[in-house]
Amino acid sequence: MQSAVEVRDLTVAYRENPVLWDVDLDVMPGTLMAIVGPNGAGKTTLIKAILGLIKPAAGRIRILGKPYQKVASSVGYVPQRGSVDWDFPTSVMDVVLMGLYGRLGWIRRPGQSEHQVAISALKKVEMDDYSDRQISQLSGGQQQRVFLARALVQDADVYLMDEPLQGVDATTEHAIIEILHSLRSSGKTVLVVHHDLQTVTSYFDEVLLLNIRRIVSGPVSEVFTDENLRHTYGGRVAIIKNPA
């Protein structure tokens, strides 16, 4: 069976310090996987490398068997909430429509049908009443839902989400998890950078424990063990020394 996401020998370095080292990963279609690891473990870097936002020093990444550039329209992305300026003068609807820009192509503006798609995505995240709101008037959880809606309209096969549950209220957390589960049951592949170890077992099927290197990955029930966690988090490990 074709992997949804296939990462081989991926090494990423800032200057000459490795942020990811020789990481291998296979994610089968229909998997809901958490990426877990301490700060600076390279979780965000892994997501960005898969999306082609960062050029790796070495390694091969394939999504649905193809390089990212070829399948970009089948990949949805939810960046960290803090990565944008929420005081930007735009509405919830506008942000969600941005998910369709790739499909729209140059110059064409979003029309009636695009608005329909956006509204139904907003309904899924229970934000349809807010479509005209300016984004700075939203709470953290609402902002996160808007980002999720933007990814939903991409109607992708593979979703990459960077800390979608960071700093959201309990209601939003449940709403998001419900959506993640429904994505999985419709055969989508979802990779989620996750920080809360308590909830990994109940929310996700598979987990990747990452700390610059891949510690282990596989079904939560098998690999999410105390020993592996100690291995991932225990004894803060130094980054490889510069040869110079």
């Binding site: 000459e16 020093a57 040869p243 110079a244």
Partner: peptide, 12 residues
């Protein structure tokens, strides 16, 4: 950097 790149690659 060039030197480091080789060293780095060799280690990899």
């Amino acid at each position: 950097q060039r030197n480091q790149r080789w060293q780095f690659a060799i280690k990899m």
